[in-house]
Design a protein around this nucleic acid. Structure first.
Lengths: 341, 341
DNA sequence: CTGTTAGCGCATTCAG
DNA sequence: CTGAATGCGCTAACAG
């Protein structure tokens, strides 16, 4: 475990000179630089991250605050986590995972004073997320996956729900569908102001009316059972829809099951689109679902990049990124059957 | 950002005394301890993790080496990651996620010299995992999720595949099934010596013959398409099975689809058990599958605990934990229909 | 029971 | 262009 001192001795130069060839903070003559590089190589030297962190006051560690909720963790979250870890590595940082109880002021303040992380990434951001003002007050750099309602001057990366829902509805209306129901997440989550649920709902209402769709929304708990109940409720009415847009991964199996129980075939009788899922989840359904897949990897990349930029240059103009989900047609959608409607 | 020196000054004691009340390494008189605690409280002091790490040569950070393969990451891995993060927190550690390229000697050596982590947890351990001797050589503490073949003196936490498969087969044979096929993961993975695939196969062969089962194994790529092909192959034969054991989450949808395409109902015509999945995945299928769920959370807990113990006491007797999957009957299994067999 | 002191390994200011 | 010296905040001998 060679240290900089060892390198300096071996190269016959001062310790600081070694430090400078590492940081590139000042110019070094080519001969001495070569000498030092060789010494480093010979000794198999690598700077100690902890010592460097202590001296420079930068750990190059960022934290990902995992969703406190049980609900949140699905395949697309997993993709996000992996993506964030990779992005962090690419930017020469480490990613630590922080679970549970990281939302109170005390927790966040503690995190800051521990000094182990340079900044944090928030998941599951709500419209009025209390963590945002907290972090601002603490002066702990952060970036958001999702965004609060007025997102003035905040660095975030989020799904463009408006365009996502637009493209889904257009796909369906282009295929002749006119009665399209929306299976959103639960009422509680909506009332709690969870961004995706609120924004997707707004987008559905907006584009639905613009495209002349007969809309109807049903809120479902994120369980197969919830999806089953939701689906039953939808088809109880006198004017059943010819298509379903579902933004509720966990409820999806129940929805499909209820459809089958009613003798409704997908896509012959009813088209189904899964919005804001992972493609892996959509492909796991039978039939494979047409879906608007969350761009988790890219969002992760943006979130990490944003954070690192904020850390390195606190005065930087903050980047706000909106990415729509990519619509992938699979086997769960078809043109509406004229005869039956 | 108060430091220990501030606390010492405010309490009118020496810096080291403050340090000792923190570490509890030596006895302090009650009055001075109280004085110091009060000072810490007043100044809202919290020890700086980086400085502490530098001085003590322990960062209290452990790394989770994510599966290099694309394959590995499913819902149960996610549960494992979450569990590990929680366990780490409970043991006053942080968990960093390391992705990609952490298997070569250079990578691991670099990780060690960086000095940021005290130890690592390996996932996706193979029977002859090259990382194990590497880590031993480097002297970097580690613990395993899974285990190499002779696992002498290695700390690991793994699924008890033998008992898991036994319970699955017994469930089926108790219900009258005699012809039971096994859908394992791909041949490539088996040949690569991936622990779960090898051990599950051995267990299936062993218990199958012991229980008088007509066995047949088919290897499937971890995709719906692979599962479809596997299922077709299985039912091509003259003596189709009455039950399927599937240890291949990603192939499962394809298997079910192929069954349906052949007009075979689950569980009336064929019983299906998903082995070593997450319950979330089993519940996402239609019908919800009887499954042997991987005890991801508990394994994570053990793996982290093992690692921390190893770090704190290099000479400790290493713990080896085997936990069977918990069998949860759902709607995909039934007694064999006597008439049709 | 408590204080003094020497590092941990590196970044960086101040000299030269 | 390079060296010497100081300190980041804390731990852990060493000395009372």
């Amino acid at each position: 475990m060679a240290t900089m001192k060892d390198v300096a001795d071996k190269a016959g130069v001062s310790l600081s000179t070694v430090s400078y060839v590492l940081s590139g903070t000042r110019s070094i003559s080519e001969p001495t630089r070569a000498l030092i590089l060789k010494a480093m190589d010979d000794l198999d030297f690598h700077p100690n991250a902890v010592a460097r962190a202590l001296a420079s006051k930068r750990t190059r560690v960022v934290a990902l605050l995992l969703s406190p909720q049980e609900r949140g963790m699905g395949l697309s979250e997993l993709e996000f986590v992996k993506g964030a870890s990779e992005a962090a590595k690419a930017l020469d940082h480490h990613l630590v995972l922080l679970t549970e109880g990281m939302d109170s002021e005390a927790d966040l303040a503690y995190l800051k004073r521990q000094g182990l992380v340079d900044g944090v990434i928030l998941m599951e951001v709500h419209l009025h997320d209390p963590r945002v003002p907290l972090l601002q007050k603490l002066g702990l750099p952060f970036s958001l996956l999702g965004r609060p309602d007025p997102a003035l001057n905040l660095p975030f990366a989020d799904i463009d729900f408006d365009r996502t829902i637009q493209s889904v509805l257009e796909l369906l209306t282009d295929s002749g569908h006119r009665r399209i129901s929306f299976v959103n997440q639960s009422r509680e989550v909506l009332d709690a102001g969870y961004g995706p649920v609120v924004r997707a709902q707004e987008a559905y209402d907006h584009w639905g009316s613009l495209l002349g769709v007969e809309t109807s929304t049903i809120y479902s708990h994120p369980t197969p059972r919830g999806g089953w109940a939701a689906c039953q409720a939808i088809f109880e009415g006198s004017a059943p829809p010819s298509a379903l847009v579902v933004m509720n991964d966990r409820a999806l199996p129940g929805v499909l099951q209820a459809l089958a129980a009613r003798g409704l075939r997908v896509p012959e009788d009813v088209s189904v689109v899964s919005a804001v899922t992972s493609s892996a989840a959509a492909e796991m359904m039978v039939p494979a679902l047409t879906s608007a897949d969350a761009p988790s990897q890219e969002l992760a990349w943006r979130a990490v990049t944003n954070l690192v930029k904020t850390i390195e240059n606190p005065g930087v103009v903050l980047e706000q990124t909106l990415i729509p989900c990519k619509l992938t047609p699979r086997s769960s959608t078809s043109r509406v059957d004229r005869k039956s409607h």
